[in-house]
C-alpha cells in the first residue's frame, strides 16, 4: 500500500523577482501533525516561501503540491485546505472583528451554522469576544494578530501557514496561541510557522528549517538535536554500558573504547540516561548533545558557516 502524499510539498520550488533569485530551488515536505518552524534572518526568503505555500505567489520554477495535487492547477483547493496568516495580519479596516470573520467565512463558502459555530468558538478561544464589535482599524497589533489568526483557523484547514504569528502577543496570549496550534497539529493539521524567535520553534515545532539568502540550509527534525547524546565513560569498557542502555535507546554506536553515541527512544531523556548508567555502577564522565543545538546551527548559518540541506 502506498503512503499518503504529504499535506504540503515544495518540489524544487524557486522564485525570481526583478531578475534576482529570491528563493533558490527548494524541496520541503510537510506531513499531517507536523509543525515546521521556518527560521532565517531578515530577507532570507521566509515570507516569500510562505506566500508560495499559500498560493499567493506562483513559483518561477518547480511546483507546490497540496495533498498531492499541484496548487497552481487547482487554486480553489486553497480555499478549503489552507489557512494563511500573512505578515502584519492585514485586515479590512472598515469591518468589525465579527464582520471580518464573517467575510472570511463567506469567501471560503461557509454559511449559517457552519460559519457561526467556529466563529464564536474562536472569538472565545482567542479572547476576542469583548472586541467582536470593534472596528479592525482600532485594534492594537496583538489584537490584529489574533483576529488574523482566527480568520486563518475559521474553516479548520488541513494546512496552516503562519507568518510571524507571535508578533505583538503578550506571554499569556503566546501560551494560548501555542496551545491552540498544538491542538490543531494533534487533530491532524500540518503547520508552518515563520518566526525570528528560536524559542517559538523549539516550543512548538517538530521540525526546523533554516533559510539563508534564499537558500534552504537546514531541514531536520527538532527531536534529533536532543535525542542523540555523546556519552564519555570513566572506564575503557563500553559493553556493560551498552547492555545497560539497550532498554532506552533506539541505537547505540561505539565511537571508541571510552565514547558512545546513543540515540534515545522518544519516551527517554538525558536524565534517565544518566540515572541508568549511574544505577549500573558505571562511571559517567561526560554527557553532551551529539547534534548541535538549534541556536548554534542558526548562528552558524547566519554567519555563513552553516550546513546545506541535501
Amino acid at each position: 500500500m502506498s503512503s499518503p502524499p504529504p499535506r504540503l510539498a515544495l518540489r524544487a520550488v524557486s522564485r525570481r523577482r526583478a531578475g534576482r533569485m529570491v528563493l533558490k530551488p527548494t524541496t520541503l515536505h510537510l506531513a499531517a501533525c507536523e509543525v515546521l518552524g521556518l527560521l532565517g534572518v531578515n530577507g532570507a526568503g521566509k515570507s516569500t516561501t510562505l506566500m508560495l505555500m499559500a498560493g499567493v505567489l506562483a513559483p518561477s520554477g518547480g511546483r507546490v503540491e497540496l495533498n498531492g495535487a499541484d496548487l497552481g492547477e487547482v487554486p480553489e483547493r486553497a480555499r478549503r485546505h489552507i489557512g494563511y496568516l500573512p505578515e502584519h495580519a492585514p485586515l479590512w479596516p472598515e469591518l468589525s472583528v465579527r464582520e471580518q470573520l464573517d467575510a472570511h467565512g463567506h469567501l471560503r463558502g461557509l454559511r449559517g451554522k457552519a460559519l457561526a459555530a467556529p466563529r464564536e468558538a474562536l472569538l472565545q478561544r482567542l479572547d476576542l469576544a469583548p472586541l467582536a464589535r470593534r472596528l479592525c482599524a482600532q485594534l492594537s497589533l496583538g489584537q490584529r494578530q489574533r483576529v488574523g489568526l482566527a480568520c486563518a483557523l475559521l474553516h479548520q484547514p488541513d494546512v496552516l501557514i503562519l507568518d510571524e504569528p507571535g508578533t505583538g502577543l503578550d506571554p499569556v496570549q503566546t501560551e494560548n496561541l501555542r496551545g491552540l496550534l498544538r491542538e490543531r497539529a494533534a487533530a491532524g493539521a500540518a503547520i508552518v510557522l515563520s518566526t525570528h524567535l528560536l524559542a517559538e520553534v523549539t516550543a512548538l515545532g517538530t521540525r526546523a528549517a533554516i533559510l539563508h539568502q534564499g537558500e534552504l540550509r537546514h531541514d531536520a527534525p527538532l527531536r534529533a538535536a536532543h535525542a542523540v547524546w555523546r556519552v564519555t565513560l570513566g572506564t575503557r569498557q563500553t559493553e556493560p554500558a551498552r547492555a545497560a542502555l539497550t532498554a532506552l535507546a533506539e541505537a547505540i554506536e561505539v565511537e571508541d573504547a571510552q565514547h558512545l553515541r546513543v540515540q534515545l527512544r522518544s519516551d527517554a531523556d538525558a536524565a534517565l540516561l544518566a540515572r541508568t548508567l549511574v544505577g549500573a555502577n558505571l562511571a559517567l564522565l561526560g554527557l553532551e548533545p551529539a547534534a548541535p543545538p538549534l541556536a548554534r546551527v542558526f548562528m552558524d548559518i547566519a554567519a555563513g558557516r552553516g550546513e546545506r540541506a541535501a
Binding site: G55, R79, Y84, P90, C151
Partner: peptide, 14 residues
Amino acid sequence: RAGTLSLLLAQGLS
C-alpha cells in the same frame, strides 16, 4: 497597498 489583496488571493479566488 493595504496588503489585503493577499487575503483574497490566498482563498484561491479566481
